[in-house]
Design a protein around this nucleic acid. Structure first.
Ligand SMILES: [Mn+2]
Ligand SMILES: [Mn+2]
Length: 300
DNA sequence: GCCTGCC
DNA sequence: GGCAGGCAACGCGTG
DNA sequence: CACGCG
């Protein structure tokens, strides 16, 4: 006696199996709750994901049970799911709400996307700084994000900061999508080395986890072709149902908690503040020639 | 979660 | 009819 | 070249 509900969205019908199954037992969120949450998240989550390669993480039996990554679009999928083949992978494009709801029914709880859009390979649309704490002291990564913004300001750049929904923060600097990853790597590496040198007790660029101590890892290696990062407004497969949430810079205080924004709390925030990621779509897109020339001149 | 192949 | 298996697996930086 | 990492 398989139980299901049908949902109509944007002119298509999607079957939701086992709507009462608890995907987030600790947060008391059922699959049906999750589907409803995804429809509300869609206006915020979809814009960044549009036309980017998707890697999703599925938890068919909820966050406390086994999960697996999925990149390839399953063979038996609705005809309205858009895909893009690169190499031997046919990527799903998370381009519309029905696709999101279809994925929600498959228990996709995390949506990770590429740094470049599919039809502009090798040309990232932002420089992204991935800040990974080594401890649960969130105030340290908050501090690093603020220092990162300081140096961005010194170069007449600015960015948007978001929680990862796990333990870290990420800073997005929109750029003209005409620079290769080798060039954005130079910028990311330069800032990483500079900040690690300036704040040696706080920041490390050490690749070996064992050698990082309690320092924040400035992960300048994450921003690269075929790598992904959790999308803004993506939920996470965590017991608390955290959401990767864009923030106002003024919110970066030592009191900020990484678990503050969840499927239970984020919607009130979105109604009050709207989409804080908007500057990445509508704001200035920076050019990198000045900083690239500076790095070149100083042989860094 | 769902499909496929195999017993 | 029922069960097991697949669903990403590699590129890259550093020692 | 062999790893550790994400
Ligand atoms: Mn991270
Ligand atoms: Mn990282």
């Amino acid at each position: 006696m398989s139980q299901y509900r049908l949902v109509q969205i944007d002119g298509v019908e999607i079957k939701i199996s086992n709507p009462d199954k608890l995907l987030f037992p600790q947060a008391n969120i059922s699959k049906w709750d999750y589907v409803l949450s995804c429809t509300r998240l869609a206006p915020f989550l979809l814009p960044y994901c549009k036309d980017r390669h998707l890697t999703t993480i599925r938890y068919p039996d909820g966050v406390n049970n086994e999960s697996f990554f999925q990149k390839n679009a399953p063979a038996h999928r609705p005809e309205w799911v858009m895909t893009k083949t690169e190499g031997d992978i046919e990527y799903i494009l998370l381009n519309n709400t029905p696709t999101l709801i279809w994925l929600a029914n498959l228990a996709c709880l995390e949506f990770h996307v590429s740094f470049n859009v599919a039809n502009n390979p090798n040309r990232p649309s932002e420089v992204v700084f991935d800040l990974d704490p080594s401890t649960d002291d969130f105030s340290r990564v908050v501090e690093v994000a603020l220092y990162t913004r300081e140096i961005l300001h010194q170069m007449d750049l600015d960015g948007v900061v978001k929680t990862s929904g796990a333990s870290g923060l990420q800073v997005y600097v929109p750029i003209e999508p005409e620079y290769c990853y080798e060039d954005t790597r130079k910028v990311n590496r330069f800032i990483a080395y500079y900040l690690a040198e300036q704040y040696p007790d706080l920041i490390t660029i050490e690749r070996r986890v064992q050698h990082r101590g309690d320092k924040v890892y400035f992960d300048y290696l994450q921003h690269w072709k075929n790598k992904t990062l959790i999308a803004p407004y993506s939920p996470r497969g965590k017991p608390e149902a955290t959401v990767s949430t864009p923030l106002k810079w003024e919110e970066l205080t030592p009191a900020l908690s990484p678990k503050q924004w969840t499927l239970a709390t984020v919607f009130q925030r979105l109604e009050q503040l709207g989409d804080l990621f908007q500057p990445v779509y509508r704001g200035p897109r920076y050019v990198l020639e000045p900083i690239l020339k500076f790095i070149e001149r100083h042989k860094l």
